[in-house]
Design a protein around this nucleic acid. Structure first.
Lengths: 337, 337
DNA sequence: CATCACGCTGTAACCGGTTTCATGTAACCG
DNA sequence: CGGTTACATGAAACCGGTTACAGCGTGATG
């Protein structure tokens, strides 16, 4: 492995000059610079990142906190993969790498903080269950630039990225109303999760705006999973007065709901129209296709990368970024015949 | 930030001793060791990984090469997320972290090699399209311990992990045969991909074993995607003599096939039974549920971690690891009425 | 001509660990 | 009791970069 001193010797200059060629090209004489670059290519010189980090305290690495505890829901965020692609791409475009943080089972409250310190991470992105794990709170409060994905994060240099859940839910309800539905129920996410609460709020707001009554029996709490959607739908169907449309606050629950409706011998969209939320891959694969509120998947990653890099470069924590959502119409909300 | 010299001073020992406490606890006197550990905890001392790496050339980081070029299929491996969880967990249990490698758009043939060198990565895991990208070939040949996921990798210290595609395909065909089907077609993956070729081979082998004829018109090539499955199924249905069962070499294609069958006014499983491959999440969500060949998702990650760590610790490249597959029976292959 | 500014470069200390080698001490053995 | 050995530790070099500071040559300025 070629070192900076070797390269310097070959070029007849000092290591400092070589270093400057790479970090501060402006200050070094054009001729010298060219020569150093040429020689560097020739002998395959590569600056050693560890040495650099040791000297500068900048690692050009961002940690990804991704809580894969199977008891919690977060580990399978509906479009984790797309977020990850966006994040990786956006970070690498800015010269940063992504380190998957792991606590090696260590259950200390500052396991993450320690990992971040140990590796001199420049910033952190968190995507997880949204439960306020103390070790995550510590992390956000520790002062590293910190961006939460789909979960609020508070700390001296922390911000977050989320979708416009309220607006999306309103879009969904408005759409069902435009399709002529008036008895619009909702299956919500868990009340303690932020997306769950916000989507419910949007549903309520839009009902008010449309002058439709708020009917408590039309609000059933689900769990964002298939089985929860199934169970919730069965409860809705069991009531005397069943809805003619349901806004389901998550696509996976919507699939469960779809099955429950079919089991009850009813048809979508003829008897009950359905609108989901997320636009996961399955949504397009169902029959009928699932009308849903799409989130800007790649946008999550990009926005997170932007925010964390900005903070790394000394900016104050930017305000939370709310990504727009949009309605994707498919068969499950087609005009009934 | 507390350094090793500070800690040493506080304990009245030399930095060397402190270092030994952490790396070679056996050689240092029990009393001294305890004292150092206690003091370390008290002042929150954390060894700096960059300094360590600089001195030892071991980073305890493994790179993940994940080609997200959208023109290639690899970036959305059917169960990327599960593999990633398995990998992360298994690595972290062995004291390694996972660094998502990115080439920052650099199109050099040894972009990956350079990234690995620069960061002193101890090993690499690759999951991608399976196309022989020259920069990946270089990487495998560069001598870093290297494990391919669902793709063969050759190099001085390289091996790979894959599923028993042949065996799985045979299971599928045998199952359809047991259900009384005799006109068993297949929709394959692209012939140039390894899983595609192997699953086709399994299909052929099992037909032979069962004494069923090989009918060229019953073999249609797909692309592992929804649309390819749909198109392939239409071709099968258009023939004079249509099959009563299809082994589809990927679940996503199977979903496409299912739609094509429905569009043709036929029923699954009554008219045509279907068996997929992969056991992706959708498989259980369809109606009818998709009978499929399940792969050991978490096993991929674990096996890859084991292999790469073994090689890092000096072992020779272990032979390729073939993970067992198993049949998951659902509605799409129920006995026809 | 002395002075100064400017542009470029080198020297050397430093980042925070690890590791070789030497050394001191205590135990052990014939 | 002298010599060997094992054990525990410290001094110092080293890993490969960065950077504060000093120095040098050149041309401009008073």
């Amino acid at each position: 492995m070629a070192t900076i001193r070797e390269l310097a010797r070959l070029c007849g200059v000092s290591p400092a000059t070589v270093s400057r060629v790479f970090n501060n090209p402006g200050v070094v004489n054009a001729k010298t610079r060219e020569q150093v670059l040429r020689m560097a290519r020739q002998i395959g010189y590569l600056p050693n990142q560890s040495a650099r980090t040791l000297a500068t305290k900048k690692s050009f690495m961002v940690g990804l906190v991704w809580d894969t505890d199977h008891r919690r829901p977060g580990w399978r965020h509906p479009f984790f993969q797309e977020i990850l692609i966006g994040l990786k791409t956006a970070l690498s475009g800015r010269g940063y790498h992504l380190l998957m943080l792991a606590t090696s089972g260590e259950k200390s409250h500052d396991a993450y903080v320690r990992a971040v310190r140990r590796h001199n991470l420049d910033g952190v992105v968190m995507i997880d269950s949204g439960t306020w794990d103390p070790s995550l709170r510590r992390l956000a409060e520790s002062g590293v630039p910190c961006v939460g994905l789909d979960r609020p994060v508070r700390g001296p240099r922390a911000t977050y990225v989320t979708s416009d859940n309220v607006g999306g839910a309103r879009l969904a309800v408005r759409h069902l109303h435009e399709r002529g539905r008036r008895a619009i129920a909702t299956i919500t996410g868990p009340a303690h999760t932020r997306p769950g609460a916000e989507r419910l709020r949007g549903y309520r707001e839009e009902l008010s705006r449309l002058g439709l009554p708020q009917r408590p029996e039309f609000v059933v709490e689900g769990d964002f999973y298939l089985s929860g959607g199934h169970a919730a739908m069965r409860r809705l169907l069991a009531a005397d007065d069943r809805p003619d449309a349901v806004f389901v606050a998550g696509d996976e629950m919507a699939v469960g709901a779809l099955h429950a409706i079919a089991e009850a011998g009813l048809k979508v969209p003829e008897d009950i129209a359905l609108v989901g939320f997320d636009d996961i891959e399955v949504a397009a694969l169902m029959s009928p296709g699932l009308t849903t509120i799409a989130q800007d998947k790649a946008g999550f990653g990009t926005a997170a990368a932007e925010a964390v890099v900005a903070m790394i470069n000394g900016a104050d924590a930017p305000p939370p970024r709310i990504l727009p959502t949009r309605l994707v119409v498919r068969g499950s909300s087609s005009p009934s015949l």
